[in-house]
């Protein structure tokens, strides 16, 4: 009952988005996507298919020329204040972690809530320590990022985004830069996050994660969305020929 209600709230709506790079390359061609609250959407596709570009338009890191993107009721337009508002509500996790190396783990988490939300430092610190405990690294709170392993750094990065209490989380290939033995600890954290009801858009090559966690899988190629399907259908019976080709390549 509650799930059905939540599913009706649209968190992200992209309509007819077109992006040209400054060099003229048509990176996104008329892409549409709707994400409901509490949903986990996994975007897959060969490299260069525009999936990262698409994800990065959702918080204004990448520009788009035509079309519209509405996130949590806020339109991404030319208004700088609305962009800032969207970035406050949307968390992002990068392939390269992008932790701030000159700050301790704890300061990485507290920087934005204190600066952007104007919250009291002691209160944010308490919340940050709880989050670090949730991702399993609260003993490292006073170390610098350079002293942590890749998997630990990525979990800190997730906690850093969560500390802003986002309504939507974006993951841009969060496990691609990790050594194989560290992939699972990060996916574990993401899975728990999804189970907690977080709305997530994930660009990844991890098929097992997509099968187990995703509500829907999106296949992109050459800047276009070719197929959107539930994971069981997508992986067992893909409709589009490019989906079949892609799946045969990664298996």
């Amino acid at each position: 009952m509650t799930q059905a209600l939540a599913a009706d709230v649209v968190m992200l709506e992209a309509r007819g988005v077109n992006t040209w790079y400054p060099n003229g390359h048509h990176a996104l061609r008329n892409v549409d996507l709707t994400v409901h609250q509490g949903e986990v959407v996994v975007i897959m596709g060969p490299s260069g298919s525009g999936k990262s570009t698409f994800l990065r338009t959702f918080n204004g890191l990448e520009d788009f020329q035509t079309g519209s993107i509405i996130i949590d009721g806020i339109n991404i337009g030319d208004d700088l204040r609305q962009r800032d508002a969207i970035r406050r509500e949307v968390g992002m996790v990068f392939q390269q972690f992008n932790l701030f190396p000159h700050l301790t783990v704890l300061d990485n988490l507290t920087l934005a809530p204190v600066l952007v939300r104007g919250r009291a430092k002691t209160q944010v610190e308490r919340q940050a320590l709880e989050l670090l405990e949730r991702v399993g690294i609260h003993e490292q709170a006073h170390k610098y990022p350079g002293q942590l392993s890749g998997g630990q750094q990525q979990r800190v990065a997730i906690a850093r985004s969560l500390c802003m209490e986002p309504r939507l989380m974006l993951f841009d290939e969060p496990t691609s830069a990790l050594d194989p033995e560290m992939v699972q600890e990060v996916l574990q954290v993401m899975q728990e996050l999804a189970a907690g009801g977080m709305t997530m858009v994930v660009v990844t090559h991890e098929v097992r994660f997509a099968r187990q966690v995703a509500d829907r899988v999106v296949l992109m190629a050459d800047g276009e969305v070719l197929e959107i399907a539930a994971p069981e259908q997508f992986f067992s019976n893909p409709q589009h020929p490019r989906s079949q080709q892609f799946l045969s390549q990664i298996n």
């Binding site: 800032d84 970035r87 992008n98 701030f100 985004s161």
Partner: peptide, 21 residues
């Protein structure tokens, strides 16, 4: 690296805060 600025901006820091912090 550009990722540092991108991370700061995605956390909601504005240009001045990104630069100074």
């Amino acid at each position: 690296p550009r990722g540092q600025v991108e991370a700061a901006r995605s956390l909601g820091l504005n240009t001045a805060q990104t630069l100074s912090h």
